[in-house]
């Protein structure tokens, strides 16, 4: 069976006219435009099986939104193609969009002056959702996204968090098979973020909806996505599961020991014991707790723990997972070669 989303060598170029400053420059641009081609997306291929939540990450200007716009049929690729749910968006737009939902966190898709409730009844007609199903759906969306308190307000009066939930509900009204979310948590507080995440999870689990989401909040990725695609300057630089990312790049571990006697800290000398440099290990004390970060390629977790336990009295021990944020920061800075 073919993947729900299939993209092959997607490429998008934008022509940019370079204007020189001032009126003279503007006139020159009019008659002899100085064109430059910006490659926003540079031959990207990937697949998403049905029912998966895929996280799309990358620094600002990487080309994430441009990919989403091609997948949703808003932009026509310069070359390459994508097929989603068996359809090519640019060829069969009206039938295709019936089965997808799209949210751009940066911009509302709703009518500015309409009360939210009215908005949904217009969308109901546009998507031809039967009355019975519409009622059920509204109850469900009301429940997971907590729309009740502002459903009678005009869209222009909603706060960012309310508007985002309203937009997500609008994208889900017609029970799409695929949901595209471009920065659905941008600018939201933790409570609303959590509400939105649990809604996405619920839709994905209960209805098997395939989800692609872009974000700069790595918590979204850790909490929602089984797989990530990372792009940088229009190119795909990583495609795989979170554990794979950790496995490949995450060789730094963090252990935290709770000592019975704080000052015992000075007895611990990891550098001498394992013949390590400052780059490979660091140990910090804060009251009675000691945090040790080290490179697992140089010394194993087991050796580290047994040395510590045999040297000092330990009350409690905590092994922290590799922090995905650290890895991604490194990738963005191109410290990790791929």
């Amino acid at each position: 069976m073919e993947a729900m989303i299939y993209a092959e060598n997607l490429r998008k170029e934008f022509k940019k006219i370079i204007k020189e400053p001032g009126l003279k420059g503007a006139a020159k641009a009019l008659f002899k435009p100085n064109k430059e081609i910006v490659t926003a997306v540079d031959d990207i291929s990937f697949e998403v099986p049905a029912g998966e939540i895929l996280g799309f990450i990358g620094p600002n200007g990487a080309g994430k939104s441009t990919v989403i716009k091609m997948l949703t049929g808003i932009l026509t690729p310069t070359s390459g193609f994508c097929r989603i749910n068996g359809k090519i968006p640019q060829e069969d737009r009206k039938n295709y969009v019936r089965e997808i939902g799209v949210v751009f966190g940066q911009r509302t898709q709703l009518w500015w002056d309409l009360a939210l409730r009215e908005t949904y009844s217009v969308l109901k007609e546009i998507y031809q959702v039967p009355e019975e199903q519409f009622k059920k759906r509204m109850t469900f969306l009301n429940e997971v996204l907590e729309l009740d308190s502002f459903i009678t307000s005009p869209v222009r009066t909603l706060s960012l968090g309310q508007r985002m939930r309203a937009d997500i509900a609008a994208a889900l009204l017609h029970s799409p098979k695929v949901l595209f979310l471009d920065e659905p948590t941008i600018g939201l507080d933790v409570v609303v973020k959590e509400n939105i995440r649990s809604a996405i999870r619920k839709i994905n689990e209960e209805e098997g909806t395939t989800v692609i989401l872009t974000t700069h909040d790595l918590a979204d990725i850790e909490l929602l996505c089984e797989r990530i695609v990372m792009i940088d300057k229009g190119r795909k630089v990583f495609d795989g599961g979170l554990s794979e990312l950790r496995h490949n790049f995450g060789d730094v571990r963090t252990l935290r020991f709770e000592l019975v006697n704080g000052p015992d800290f000075k007895l611990l000398d990891y550098r001498r014991r394992f013949k390590l440099t400052d780059d490979d290990v660091s140990a910090e004390r804060d009251g009675s707790s000691v945090t040790v970060r080290f490179d697992t390629a140089k010394v194993s977790v087991e050796e580290m723990i047994s040395y510590t336990l045999s040297t000092v009295h330990v009350k409690d021990l905590n092994i922290k997972d590799v922090e995905i944020e650290e890895i991604i920061k490194k990738l963005y800075r191109r410290e990790v070669s791929l």
């Binding site: 949703t72 049929g73 808003i74 019936r98 911009r107 898709q109 546009i126």
Partner: peptide, 8 residues
Amino acid sequence: DKYLTRPI
């Protein structure tokens, strides 16, 4: 954008 994502 929004007009292009609706089935009419």
